[in-house]
Design a protein around this nucleic acid. Sequence first.
DNA 1: TCTGGGGTCCTAGGACCC
DNA 2: TCTGGGGTCCTAGGACCC
Length: 426
Amino acid sequence: MVVPIALIDCNNFYVSCERVFDLRLRGVPVIVLSNNDGCAVARSEEAKALGIKMGDPAFKIRDKIRAHSIRVMSSNYTLYGDMSRRVVAVLHDFSPRLENYSIDETFVDLSGFGDRMVKQAADMRAEVRERTGIPTCVGIGPTKTLAKLANFAAKKNPLFAGVCDLTEQKVADYVLARVPVGEVWGVGSATEGKLVSQGIEWASQLRDMPLPLARKLGTVVLERLVAELRGIPCLDLEEVAPQRKGMAVTRSAGEPMMTFDTLAQAVTAHATRAAEKLRSHGLVAGTITAFFHTNQHKPDRPQHSASRSAIMKPMSADTFDLVGAAMRCIRSGWKGDPSGNGHGYTKAGIILDDLIRAEDAPRLLFEPDRPRSASLMKALDAVNDRFGKKTMVLATEGFKGSWGLKADHRSPRYTTRIADLPVVLI
DNA sequence: TCTGGGGTCCTAGGACCC
DNA sequence: TCTGGGGTCCTAGGACCC
């Protein structure tokens, strides 16, 4: 018994979020830049038509931006996260069984709608558009991989009017014969190269290739993918997000970090943020890794990178514990004298692993519990929640240092900050 | 001279995703 | 001058165990 699955995917999501609140961005080319205003991570259809590619570095497309008056926005993840939550809330009204796959994609179980599936999908689109202002496309298929492929077709081919149903065999044959293998979900550039060298260039050829060959070329992952293309489900709908295994806070610096103190400030900030994230999920970490490195896009310059890990004993989500461990890590990885060694570090970060729920954390036999740690963190979080992020920080973080992010074109937090509410003039 | 068989666990690295 | 951030899964190979 096949369960039809729909994938509803927001069109050019970050750009669409910006356009909901700023009418001047509609109908003109718009791009949204990554953190630090580094590269293009979202493009409006107009910007795509001008040849702006996903991941293009901002400085390389500067001339194009000027020549075509492309509107440039810094990323505003607070806004996008909140808009995503609103989209999912609408979808919940249509089906109780859904998987929140990414910030702009949701899988929805469509079983029970019979031949009204396409109508149902069209209604979902309309309702999301009406209640959030976000345009979407829907792909339907017997497996997640086919639903993704259907979504790709719905976006590319206007004939589908935003909804493509691949549970129809004839439609599936038509679409798969026209989609390049590299566009299939799970086929990246490495696998694409191997497949093409075997003469497999289209999704239909991938579907029809022998399973043993698929396993040989791309392990069990590719074998499952081929099965999914044949309509045999190998990937379940994950209604409950599995317990996460790791968590990271990493950032590029606004300008190269030349001294140990600057690096220490940045790493303190990242570890502080990581500890906040841990606590907000009710988790503790067993391992912490701190790393930093020079600009890897400039191989001709002197390069240095360091990464050190430490075991957290006891496992912890305490800011002081994690910052302390992170400082020991970077001190051990630092090369040269503390005042600076000629290297400009452009990126640093914290990675936490071995995460478990705080209440499941093992107690140490001979280590006294610290009853004040939890209440201190609770107070710290309460202050920063009430008065804004970074109201209270560790002194080692310093005031906003030169490592800070660049974000020269950020829109207001329209939906999550009272001071940023849009104003309507009548 | 001749030196087993069958496991588990951990890690690094690769590949992929949005 | 200027190139993001945060995840997951799989495999091979080494260390180790009895």
